[in-house]
Design a protein around this nucleic acid. Sequence first.
DNA 1: AATATCAGTATACTTTTGTATACTGAACAT
DNA 2: ATGTTCAGTATACAAAAGTATACTGATATT
Lengths: 135, 135
Amino acid sequence: MSDFKDFIGSEKGPQCPRVYILALTDTLNVISGKWKLPIIAALLRGANRFKDLLDSTEKITPRMLSKELKELEMNSIVERKVYNQMPVLIEYRLTKSGKDIANVIDSMIDWGMVHRTQVITNSDTGEEKVNKTVG
Amino acid sequence: MSDFKDFIGSEKGPQCPRVYILALTDTLNVISGKWKLPIIAALLRGANRFKDLLDSTEKITPRMLSKELKELEMNSIVERKVYNQMPVLIEYRLTKSGKDIANVIDSMIDWGMVHRTQVITNSDTGEEKVNKTVG
DNA sequence: AATATCAGTATACTTTTGTATACTGAACAT
DNA sequence: ATGTTCAGTATACAAAAGTATACTGATATT
């Protein structure tokens, strides 16, 4: 485990290694935006053709799907395979990294669920808070 | 552990519970954007006044810092405390949830580092790939 | 009295991200 | 021959996110 807290903990202590920052921004780039996680989820569910992804990712336009798939491919999250039969068949599949990102998703879900219970518990103690995403 | 993969795994299997989706988007909202993680990192390092955060978060403008802190406060990641001495002293501190998010950051770093070694290993096997964030 | 610090706000941009709508071209299917 | 499916592209636009620069008002400091 990398334990970011140890490096971020003190100004005079060891500096947070640059590779950690790079790894972190990589991850954020991969999952940020409106469509990345829905697309990854659809691929995890087994959808693999452009049309499947269009149908199973609600409300996405072909332009956005095309753009997002290109980015995911550039970042080695997705592989695009062309089968030269007639008519041509194109499949998108998650790479190993693409599948592994489910671990990050799990830790996000865990934090999010605990966070919600903490927010609700605190608002019961009389402290009124306005919350944008949690309430 | 929530194990998102079990729910996403099959179309006929159990559906991914809605609370998981909510928790996930909460988390993404908290960490997405250019400044959220740098600010959280600065707070973990111990900075707690507006001026400290301005100085330790490189290149951020007061407008952005003010805006981000308000959002973090609304989402119960940060607490704003006003000490009514003269001159007035204002401190920002991470809540329990705010501190706990370091766990998510750790899992992001872990994934990002493994991902980088996998990308480099694969590009050694002759397959040339263009990568936006990893190379 | 002039200057500096703290904790921001105000106004006006620019850039990035996402949407809407229509279209293309190749290969079938009827 | 006409229509449909697949796998996208093209153009234009709207909205969100971020930047630049200047300013405010209260309280010190010199």
